[in-house]
Design a protein around this nucleic acid. Structure first.
Lengths: 341, 341
DNA sequence: AAGCTCCCTGCACATATGTGCACACTCCCA
DNA sequence: TGGGAGTGTGCACATATGTGCAGGGAGCTT
């Protein structure tokens, strides 16, 4: 037993007669089973990878990779469960003040905005698995926060699920399909969900075009799916960010738009629908041309998860909270503190 | 900031005004919060312990210990969740044949009986947390398996729970209280549950004494608690084990008892109630003097978890399964394979 | 206040783990 | 049958992690 093939055969042999024939043994299922066994031995029985390698007749490094695989694919589920009496003062205050369940991501105060976003996104990606399950539809926005989240998702097998794009991503330079697709695809892959694109621009030039298109059956189909969402996931956009949001730099808006935003005292947006500090949004002209869901629609979704990081989004975030758009808020610690001050 | 005290103060300071006064900050809650933060940074954000040490203003080794603490106290919950299509052939067969949910513990075939027991017990201790929750009563037996399990329990905070001893542990040499208490205490500590002792011998000399005592109100109280159990946890005893069970070596039984057991074709016991290969037990004389719960009582418990390891317990285990005493079975892989052959 | 114990800390060392790299195997296509 | 791309493996090294030990503070007793 010296070559990898012989070892794999030996492993099959040990598993019993029904596994000995490679023809009926799907190679992928075999890897999953090995990963499962390795995970059990490592996380439950506390064996070292060396010992596991020995039991599995493979090398230690393969076990290391097997375990990474197990974590990535959600075979191993690691949760932090704070005893109820240990929920932080911050969480309680935010719950009391905004009626929102806060998930506070510890991040040192001196962290750069980029790192902060990355770390909050990483945490969000891991928490998300507990919000999404079989027979659900999740609506997702796009932007730098959503991109970061999509890169860190942990797989979870679900059935009869779909991911639906909340707002168009096209602009004067691109259809946005490549960009938005990448995010959607990652979500779809992670959860084994059907992906529903929304191939429209972020903003129309003429509100009438939007109204017309919105009456089309092909568009209605997507809108109908949106209105049946169980979870909505979005970041917070703001024109005043140190790292400005994708919408405000990507060629979606022109000078007139910016002027209008200033006049209307816009503080930010959710899925390209703009709002003021008090949460009002209805009479902002730009919204008539925007493709994101009207907040009345959004508020019908049972779980509305907002991910925000960094001080520069604070004003926008306050607006979003004032509008009552959020049921679950994932933020960095600094922002959380600032929210209650 | 060079002494530990200064650092701890600094940590408090960073946490905000309400944490700065040590008088109102319970030292234990502080440790829990630190452990929670460390766990989040380590398991969710994938930082190294070094980086976490820096963020928490402490040393790397303290972080290592903090994380151990977090795991031990159940702050971190690591679960292995096999995708439904990957449940092993073995599990399915056992479910079909015995109508029992099997939890199979991978253990290499050449493992000694002692190691095997230890590893199965470790796995059992970790799984157990998912069976037991607030407002529940769990009945537990004693013996080498139960002792091993008790040593590896992961804490879980529950409310309004109790642990009740299933059968007496006294014999001609000791009241058994020290021995049984140790096991019960560990369970009670792990789950924050109220502990209910059963201070009687394992076997009475005279069945009439048992009957008399069973009519006493003090005894009835314990029996009543037993009959309201939500979970029962027990191992399998057998006189034929390589590592013989505690009951059969601890001075509980005399030569006459052994002779009788042979005559009755006893294969083993559950909580000191003996049974035959076909699961029958009612007409075994010894049982009239035994203090474990009658199987009719036991079978009323919604969840009956049996932990068994090693080939020498196989015959007994078959009997236990035949008696229909089990809803969840935790066994080593070798035994599981033997069960379906 | 001295003396005591207990517990917590950081250091230093021994282990355990993650990863770039080269090689070998499989599968696919010509 | 013979490449060639792609995947998976083990080796060796660089890091990351666990733990015995000695020192020092907090709290208790006398």
């Amino acid at each position: 037993m010296h070559t990898p093939i012989e070892r794999r055969a030996a492993r099959r042999f040990e598993r019993g007669p029904e596994a000995r024939c490679p023809l009926v043994t799907d190679i992928h299922a075999e890897k999953t089973r090995d990963a499962l066994t390795a995970a059990h031995l490592y996380y439950i029985q506390d064996l070292t990878m060396d010992a596991i390698a020995h039991e599995l007749h493979t090398s230690r490094s393969s076990v290391s990779r097997l375990l990474s695989h197990a974590r990535d694919t959600g075979l191993v589920d690691i949760q932090i469960r704070s005893p109820l009496d240990a929920t932080s003062h911050l969480q309680q205050t935010i719950r009391a003040r905004y009626d929102v369940a806060a998930h506070i991501v510890p991040v040192p105060d001196h962290t750069s905005e980029v790192d902060r976003l990355e770390r909050v996104a990483l945490s969000a990606a891991r928490i998300l698995g507990s919000f999404f399950d079989s027979n659900m539809t999740m609506g997702i926005a796009w932007g730098s926060t959503m991109t970061a989240i999509s890169r860190h998702l942990v797989s979870k097998t679900t059935h009869n699920t779909q991911i639906v794009q909340l707002n168009g991503a096209g602009n004067t330079r691109t259809t946005g399909i490549t960009y938005a697709s990448e995010i959607l695809r990652r979500f779809g892959d992670a959860y084994g969900a059907y992906v529903q694109h929304f191939p429209v621009p972020a903003f129309f030039d003429d509100p009438a075009t939007k109204d017309a298109l919105w009456r089309e059956r092909s568009t209605r189909r997507v809108l109908d799916i949106q209105s049946s969402m169980d979870v909505a996931l979005f970041g917070v956009g703001t024109p005043y960010a140190e790292v400005p949001s994708h919408v405000y730099t990507g060629g979606y808006l022109d000078d007139d738009d910016y002027r209008m935003m200033r006049e209307c005292e816009v503080v930010g947006d959710v899925a390209t629908v703009f709002l003021r500090a008090d949460g009002s949004y209805a009479d902002i002209p730009l919204n008539a041309r925007a493709t994101g869901p009207d907040f009345r629609i959004l508020k019908q979704v049972a779980r509305r998860v907002c991910v925000s990081s960094g001080h520069s989004k604070l004003a926008a975030l306050r607006g979003v909270l004032a509008a009552g758009l959020v049921t679950d808020l994932i933020v960095d610690e600094g922002t959380a503190r600032a929210l209650v001050e």
